[in-house]
Simulated assay, not measured.
Amino acid sequence: MNKLLSYLSITALVLLTAGCSEDNPKSEHKGLTGYVIEANYEKNALLVAESDKTAKDGKYGAEWYSLNDDAILLDSQKSKVLFTDIEVGAEVETWSTLPSLESYPSQTDLSKLILAEDVKHPNHPMVQKKAIQIALNYVKSRTGKSDIFIVQNVVSSKSEWIIHIYHFNTEQEYELSIHAETGEVKHITEKSS
């Protein structure tokens, strides 16, 4: 009788435990592919905005991602990276498990991120990420604001990085020329959209 009672107790415990577990694990969905515009390492958060490569109909998605406990962070070779390795100007692909909050920029969790390899200038040592950092800092210093900026496009010329930035809040467009050896901002054009 004791064996039967023990067997029934164990079976009931297994069934209760299985019934309390999550039937549907959180499904992961693709987030944005774009550039990191801001990084808050204290809050484990990144602001990612689409560029011309991925924006649809001239509408640039922007999203704050908060690192979740099970997040997987990888480089382009699928090796693990630290959250602090993901810098402003880096190109990333993101995934999340939660729906985005309705705002601009929207907000969600970060379950997976793939960090693209740094693009090197063909004639100088400066990588694209560094040029983007210089460009964003320059525009922020000119506007005196840290609003939402979109890195629309980045190309290299013989000795420069040419970067187009859109200031979402003021609808201003900036074309910056960053010297790829010295980091000097050589010229700027501005226009309203």
Rank of each mutant, 00 (worst) to 15 (best):
V14R: 06
L16N: 09
L16V: 10
T17D: 07
S21N: 04
E22H: 01
N24W: 04
E28M: 14
K30F: 05
T33S: 15
T33Q: 14
V36P: 10
V36D: 09
N40P: 01
N40K: 13
Y41R: 02
E42I: 03
K43Y: 04
N44Q: 12
A45C: 02
D57W: 12
A62S: 12
E63Q: 15
E63Y: 13
Y65T: 07
S66P: 00
L67G: 02
N68F: 03
N68K: 14
D70H: 00
L73M: 00
L73N: 00
D75C: 10
Q77S: 13
K80R: 09
T84M: 10
E93K: 15
S100P: 05
E102P: 02
T108P: 06
D118Q: 14
V119Q: 08
K120F: 09
K120G: 08
M126Q: 15
K130F: 05
I132G: 14
Q133F: 01
A135M: 01
L136V: 02
L136A: 13
Y138D: 09
K140R: 15
K140I: 10
K145D: 01
S157L: 07
W161G: 02
I163P: 04
I165N: 07
T170L: 08
Y174V: 07
L176P: 04
I178H: 02
H179D: 15
A180E: 09
E181H: 06
E184K: 15
K186R: 15
T189M: 10
